[in-house]
């Protein structure tokens, strides 16, 4: 990957905006996974990636080694996501109410579509309940299909650490899913 990244970084540093955008697009998915892992909100995650995009563009001169772009950019994404998370905690809209009761009023749809949608929503809820570090590693693995080595590089940890965190995250998820399926009488 570095082979295609280095020339783009070099061009971007010369002021080539298209090259920079291409560079960020190459990292868009992994950046989205990291941001969502921290923020647990797709819109905020997209905002974090966009902010990181602008910040990285402005700070490109500070990047000493072109081949380090990925780690550098993803670090900006993480930092920005954490900033947004803190901001959200401070300024959460106080009048927002989740009208859960209305969930029960869902109308019927094609059974298989409905089942898949419900399943997707269920997993999403479980993901939301997991610690951010679990969500992050699960998304990097299951969305990006990254190797342990890659994930370790992105998260700044060891291969062993990734393996261990992934195992604990999956175990937690499987247990929550089992409990949920059990409580709803098993819907699959």
């Amino acid at each position: 990957m570095n082979l295609e990244i280095a020339p783009l970084v070099s061009a971007a540093r010369q002021g080539d905006r298209e090259a920079f955008t291409k560079l960020v697009e190459l990292h868009q998915k992994v950046a989205g996974s990291i941001a969502y892992g921290i923020l647990n909100d797709t819109h905020l995650a997209a905002d974090a990636v966009q902010d990181a995009y602008v910040k990285a563009w402005r700070g490109l001169d500070g990047l000493r080694e072109d081949e380090r772009f990925s780690a550098w950019f993803l670090k900006i994404v993480r930092t920005r996501s954490l900033d947004l998370l803190r901001h959200r905690r401070r300024k959460a809209p106080e009048t927002v109410q989740l009208d859960d009761a209305l969930d029960a009023d869902r109308g019927p749809g094609p059974p298989e579509v409905l089942e898949q949608k419900e399943r997707g929503e269920k997993i999403r809820k479980i993901l939301a309940e997991l610690p951010a570090e679990y969500r992050e590693v699960l998304l990097l693995k299951h969305d990006q299909d990254r190797s342990y080595r890659d994930i370790a590089r992105i998260l700044g940890t060891t291969v062993k650490g990734v393996e261990s965190k992934l195992f604990r995250a999956r175990r937690a998820l499987a247990e929550k899913l089992k409990r949920l399926d059990g409580s709803s009488g098993g819907d699959h």
Partner: peptide, 9 residues
């Protein structure tokens, strides 16, 4: 999980 991740992604 794959189903949920695809949705989010």
């Amino acid at each position: 999980l794959d189903l949920g991740v695809v949705k989010v992604s």
